[in-house]
Design a protein around this nucleic acid. Sequence first.
DNA 1: CGATGCAACGTTGTATACAACAGGTGAAAA
DNA 2: TTTTCACCTGTTGTATACAACGTTGCATCG
Lengths: 229, 229
Amino acid sequence: MRSKMTAQHIYQSLRSMILDLELAPGSRFTETQVADYFQVSRTPVREALQRLEVEKQITIRPKQGCFVRVVDIARIRDYYDVRVAIETLAVRLACVHMPDAALRELATQWDPANLFFGAESSDRIKLAEEAFHIALAQGSGNEALVRYLTDINDHIRVVRRLGWPDYSSIEDTYAEHHDICRLMLNRDAEAAEACMLQHIRKSQTRADQLTLAQLSEPARNPFAGTALQ
Amino acid sequence: MRSKMTAQHIYQSLRSMILDLELAPGSRFTETQVADYFQVSRTPVREALQRLEVEKQITIRPKQGCFVRVVDIARIRDYYDVRVAIETLAVRLACVHMPDAALRELATQWDPANLFFGAESSDRIKLAEEAFHIALAQGSGNEALVRYLTDINDHIRVVRRLGWPDYSSIEDTYAEHHDICRLMLNRDAEAAEACMLQHIRKSQTRADQLTLAQLSEPARNPFAGTALQ
DNA sequence: CGATGCAACGTTGTATACAACAGGTGAAAA
DNA sequence: TTTTCACCTGTTGTATACAACGTTGCATCG
């Protein structure tokens, strides 16, 4: 099925650019620029942009252009508050519905003993960290929960991107993920919830330490010079 | 600013039709049908439909058509579980951030003493009920929370629509809303949270009593005969 | 020198034409 | 009778042309 692949591709590409800060927050671009960049017409570009606007990743100002969402630290706090509520619910539900096999697999993946084998790249860890939380949400069997958590992740990814200072926090992450899995295998929902809460709050302190300078540091607009090619 | 009014209007109209069950769940329609119905081209229609698809109100099957989402009772339970988590958080936050004036206004509106004055219509009550919960979410000062709760409401509205059996439940609603406001005015977050939890769970029992027969009863496709006009 | 109006430009909103593909229908062959 | 296959129709995906509107810059007037 090749239908709608163009719009989908553009959507995912733009989304990655925004989440990875390749497009500077607050910067402006136009539909035509993106269309020229991807060598397509404006139609599939518009579809991608409209979806990104619904997700509040960009703002489309009529007759003016598209603007990448600005990172507001206060808003990130908001997302973290919701995330705590969402993920503690996810753990509680997954404690009931997630099969042992899936939990054991996660526990193995995040066993601190396996930490030194791979010498994993930092980027890979960040992706895996996000995948871990999504996996638990999926284990809850609640699709809406997965959808909201995905949206939250899209808005706080900048914290995972920039705010992972030292190696010890990676060690901590392994230990905490492992603990959560163990508690869930014991079907101890309360303890697992508490552990998840601490885990997220610790991440939130990293978010709080992000400065505005860090957030507004990269720049450059990939679409700037497309007309010349 | 008249820009984008067409697409916006079509989006809101379609959304209302779906939420009010004027479009039968599972029924099929095409972009052209909607375009003819509203006397516009397919372009703004597509924008509205794509947004509805993101919100999971419809499914667009390439080269086949658009299908109104089917109401799945299990999924409604899912949304209720998330709603409890979201709204208890909203109450907790609003207890801190919401000014007394706003809370007093809500308390007055839902004072059981005022119940008999208006002889309110059933539809009006249902709208007000939803507005009450949104108001508390807005009082939390957390925009993401408002966004998610709005999405949840869009998916469980069928319960408010069909599952409001008797007059006593309206009385109960007034009393519970009033209690929540009073507790929040006392800044007693724990009690207010507990009250909200009970309030939502009671609504959930109404949802559980909905039968598949009730959900699949209305039919008719408003777009069926548009070509003749 | 400042304010105001106007015109040209850039950008998105909408309409329309065409392309690509899924599904059904019918006839023909086994 | 059953199966297969080609064709036709309907529907969405994409490209492009045009319209409406906001912005900006400059010239003109006070």
